[in-house]
């Protein structure tokens, strides 16, 4: 499907979604609350069939956090980017590990490096950092490490 067709289809599923077409792929901005229901639909819809989550990450914009999900359909070969703004002080979003199992590890990574809490995640523990880590969230912009040099 082309960008335009994708846009029409997604407007059908979630009228509240807003779009940004400047990038290479269609960017869809949604409310965190609507995410899980919307995720289930884009996975199961026969015309969309987004079965491959190839990139899941988060961006710290200093005023808020943005979750970014990149999806491709391995049958139809179209790609979309889904973004959702989160409150920086209490970031919470529904986990999609039950729909795309690759999300389980990626969400654990975002959880420890950005502090985003994924609701209903099967195993919400630290993955990369040590278990007794208490130094904050390393990939947030205000993180400073007094011992290890990470800034040149």
């Amino acid at each position: 499907m082309t960008k335009e067709e994708l846009k029409i289809k997604i407007e059908d599923i979630l009228p509240a979604a807003t779009f940004d077409e400047t990038g290479e792929w269609l960017n869809i901005l949604i409310e965190a609350k609507a995410w899980y229901g919307f995720a289930k639909q884009i996975r199961s819809s026969r015309e969309l069939e987004f079965d491959y989550l190839f990139c899941l990450t988060c961006i710290d914009w200093k005023t808020h956090l943005t979750m970014v999900y990149h999806f491709t359909s391995t049958y139809r070969r179209h790609t979309i980017v889904i973004k959702s703004k989160l409150d920086r002080n209490n970031p919470e979003i529904e986990s999609v590990a039950a729909i795309w199992r690759t999300a389980e590890f990626h969400e654990r990574e975002v959880y420890e490096l950005f502090g985003v809490k994924f609701l209903n995640h099967p195993d919400m523990r630290k993955l990369l950092l040590t278990d007794d880590w208490s130094g904050g969230f390393p990939l947030r912009k205000d993180f400073e490490d007094p011992i290890n040099m990470i800034r040149l």
Binding site: L127, L128, L129, T130, P138, L139, F143, I150, R151, L152
Partner: peptide, 17 residues
């Protein structure tokens, strides 16, 4: 799997390169 034994936070490093 328990990861992170060679985590150097390359993504964070790249933000200042």
């Amino acid at each position: 799997p328990h990861l992170g034994y060679i985590h150097r936070s390359i993504e964070k490093m790249c933000e200042s390169l």
